[in-house]
Simulated scan of single mutants.
Amino acid sequence: MFLRKVEGVRAVRLPDGTRMTRADLPPADTRRWVASRKIAVVRGVLYGLLPLEEAMSTYGLSEEEFNAWVSAAAEHGAEGLKATALKRYRQPKGE
């Protein structure tokens, strides 16, 4: 088995006890962002699997877009990252 050399951490342990590796991240050429791929990138950055700058350059994300994913995931979980949930979860407070 061949392991490609990468800078940094190869795997992290998530709070639920599962293990996340770089193989669990979406491919770099991802164009269709479903909730499961978004949450994988968010978890990868938040738990130290890859730095934010690397995630932004690899996936072509802006800092604003990534922060929106983080806040939606923190507030509503993976359900909040679904595109069909825009009206339900992403309304301004008080409406």
Rank of each mutant, 00 (worst) to 15 (best):
M1A: 13
M1H: 10
F2V: 03
V6K: 05
G8W: 07
G8T: 08
G8C: 07
V9L: 08
R10A: 14
V12G: 01
V12S: 02
R13I: 15
R13M: 15
L14I: 10
P15N: 10
P15H: 11
D16F: 01
G17N: 10
T18E: 07
T18S: 06
T18Q: 07
T18I: 11
R19Y: 15
R19K: 15
M20W: 04
M20K: 06
R22Q: 06
D24A: 08
L25W: 00
L25D: 00
L25T: 00
P26R: 00
P26H: 00
P27N: 14
P27M: 13
P27W: 09
A28V: 09
T30I: 11
T30C: 11
R32M: 15
W33T: 03
W33P: 00
V34H: 04
I39G: 06
A40V: 09
A40M: 08
V41R: 00
V41L: 05
V41H: 00
V42N: 00
R43F: 13
R43C: 12
R43G: 09
R43H: 15
G44H: 01
V45K: 01
L46E: 00
L46K: 01
Y47D: 03
Y47H: 12
G48A: 11
G48L: 08
L50M: 15
L50I: 14
P51R: 12
P51M: 13
P51E: 15
L52F: 10
E54Y: 14
E54Q: 14
A55D: 03
M56E: 15
M56R: 13
S57I: 11
S57K: 10
Y59L: 00
Y59D: 00
G60K: 01
G60Q: 01
L61A: 03
S62P: 02
E63V: 10
E63F: 15
E64K: 13
E65V: 02
E65P: 00
F66L: 10
N67Q: 14
A68M: 07
A68Y: 02
W69T: 02
V70T: 05
A72S: 07
A72W: 00
A72G: 04
A73Q: 04
H76D: 01
E79H: 03
G80V: 00
K82L: 10
A83S: 11
T84E: 08
T84I: 12
T84Q: 09
T84H: 12
A85I: 08
A85Q: 05
A85D: 06
A85L: 09
L86P: 08
L86T: 15
L86N: 14
K87L: 10
R88S: 04
R88C: 03
R88E: 04
R90S: 05
R90P: 02
R90V: 07
K93T: 04
G94W: 05
G94I: 07
E95A: 09
E95K: 05
E95V: 09
